[in-house]
Simulated assay, not measured.
Amino acid sequence: MELKKARSLIGLLVLSSFISLFNVFPSNAASVLAAWLITSDGVLKLRTASKAKLEAYFQRGQGNTGDRIWIDFPGELIKPRKLKGNGPIDEIRLGKPFKGNTRLVIEFNKSVSLNPYKLKLVGTSENLWKLDFVGLNKVGIKSIGEGSLSRSSKNSYISNVRSKTLSNKLNSENLPNIPNGKYKIIVDPGHGGPDPGAKGLNGLIETDIVLEISRQVSRLLREKGINVKLTRYRDIDVDLQQRVSIANRSNADAFISIHANASRGNRRDISGIETFFYRGYKGRTLASNIQKQLLMISEGSPNRGVRQSNFFVIRHTNMPAALVEVGFITGRLDARLLSQTSYRKKIAFAISKGIINYLRQVY
Rank of each mutant, 00 (worst) to 15 (best):
M1G: 08
E2T: 15
L3I: 15
I10N: 04
I10G: 02
G11S: 15
L12K: 15
V14W: 12
V14C: 13
S16I: 10
S16P: 10
N23Q: 10
N23A: 13
V24I: 15
F25K: 09
I38A: 00
G42L: 06
L44E: 01
A49Y: 03
E55A: 14
F58M: 03
R60T: 11
W70Y: 13
I71A: 05
D72N: 14
D72S: 08
K79N: 02
L83D: 04
K84L: 09
G87E: 07
P88T: 05
D90W: 04
I92M: 00
R93Y: 05
G95C: 07
K99F: 07
L104I: 03
E107W: 02
E107S: 07
K110P: 06
V112A: 03
N115R: 08
P116N: 08
L121F: 13
V122F: 09
E126M: 10
V134I: 10
I141L: 00
S148A: 00
R151N: 09
S152V: 02
K154Q: 01
S156R: 05
S159C: 03
N160M: 13
N160E: 14
V161K: 12
K164I: 10
L175E: 10
N180T: 14
K182F: 15
I185E: 06
I186F: 12
V187L: 05
D188G: 01
G190H: 07
G192H: 08
D195Q: 15
G197W: 11
A198M: 06
L201H: 11
E212V: 12
E212T: 11
I213D: 05
Q216N: 09
R219V: 10
L221F: 04
R222G: 09
V228K: 02
K229M: 15
L230H: 15
R232K: 14
Y233F: 14
Y233A: 14
R234G: 11
D235R: 10
I236F: 13
L240K: 14
I246C: 05
N248M: 10
N251A: 12
N251W: 09
N261H: 03
F276I: 11
F277V: 07
R279K: 12
A287M: 03
L294P: 01
M296A: 12
G300C: 02
N303D: 06
R307H: 02
I314Y: 06
R315N: 13
H316G: 06
N318I: 13
A321N: 05
L323K: 09
G331I: 00
R332I: 05
R336T: 15
L338D: 04
Y343R: 08
Y343I: 09
S352Q: 12
K353F: 03
I355M: 02
L359G: 09
V362G: 07
